[in-house]
């Protein structure tokens, strides 16, 4: 579903620090109105990519175009179009909640009269209206994130880039945040989101790339990626860490493919319940067993041989 020219286009994009290539020749194209995910473990190059897309880090080589401009020459102009939500909150702790929004708008050169109503709208959007005069330190982690997102919207950006927006938040705060991001998406804003949470990518992203070691290892919609790389279902069985490997050998003919992890065996199959019954029929008694649908987590495991959420 391409709506004209991509708003972000990268070709063989590289960022090199000394001998280390943090980003190693990636190609990206993000369409207007799309919600685009960059998924990968810590150190995959997500944040470095993000900083290049926000025109605050210059590439080593390759081409990059954001809304038709080159960030190497049109940084301030590009940044006027963007809303940036960094990984670590960098709210102004010497200002109140409302002052944070107002001051940030002034950095864009927005007029005071305009900002007075804009700040009210944003406080409402972030559900922080009753906190408008509070100091930033007094806010909870979820509130700070919402304020950071609201701050990123002060200039009515066409593209909002969020670097790990829900890392470190409790489940309830994550859901509130996702709800706010859904609203943004519905209003037509292009979203670019990095995450190492598979459920977050599946929830929020129309399309995503999986990064590992500075490269893109897969690309597609969450459903298509799962379809392409994994059978429909997964049987998870645990036999205890000393018996998993041995059991896996004896179950080798069951399912299409196995992943033997230290604590469990994953059996990829199109018929999970039937295969679990075959395992039990052979006299195996797993300590725990679970049949579930394949997820992005399994895609990542398949592509990189490593699990994502190890932190």
């Amino acid at each position: 579903m391409w709506l004209g020219e991509p708003v972000i286009a990268a070709h063989r994009l590289v960022k090199q620090y000394g001998d280390f290539r943090a980003v190693d020749g990636i190609d990206l194209a993000v369409a207007r109105g799309e919600s685009f995910g960059i998924l990968g473990p810590n150190g995959a190059g997500k944040s470095t990519t993000m900083r290049m897309l926000t025109a605050t880090l210059q590439r080593t080589s390759g081409d990059l175009s954001i809304l038709g401009h080159d960030p190497a020459t049109a940084g301030p102009l590009i940044r006027a179009h963007l809303g940036v939500v960094p990984q670590q909150d960098n709210l102004d702790t010497e200002l109140t909640v409302a002052e944070n929004l107002f001051t940030y708008g002034r950095y864009f050169g927005l007029p005071r009269a305009y900002l007075r109503t804009r700040v009210d709208d944003l406080l409402d959007f972030a559900q922080l209206t009753d906190k408008r005069s509070a100091k930033v330190e007094s806010l909870s982690g979820g509130m700070k994130r919402r304020l950071t997102i609201a701050r990123g919207l002060v200039n009515e950006p066409e593209i909002v880039l969020l670097d790990e927006p829900t890392t470190g938040l409790d489940p309830q705060a994550r859901h509130i945040l996702w709800d706010r991001l859904f609203r943004l998406k519905e209003s037509g804003t292009t979203l670019v989101i990095t995450t190492h949470y598979m459920d977050e990518a599946a929830q929020l992203c129309d399309r995503l790339v999986v990064m590992d070691g500075g490269r893109i290892v897969a690309e597609g919609s969450p459903a298509a990626l799962i379809r392409e790389h994994c059978p429909r279902e997964v049987v998870e069985v645990r036999f205890g860490s000393d018996r998993n490997a041995q059991a896996a050998e004896q179950l080798a003919d069951i399912g299409q493919r196995h992943e033997v992890l230290p604590d469990r065996i994953l059996i990829y199959t199109d018929a999970g319940e039937a295969d679990l019954q075959r395992i039990v029929a052979r006299g195996f008694e797993p300590i725990t067993s679970l049949v579930r649908r394949s997820s992005l987590e399994d895609v990542f495991l398949r592509l990189t041989g490593r699990s994502l959420a190890e932190d």
Partner: peptide, 20 residues
Amino acid sequence: MIMQATAVTAAVAIAERHAH
């Protein structure tokens, strides 16, 4: 509800005036 500008927003107009 947050408004979404499809036209050139104020911040962009300001940046464009300075860009040259």
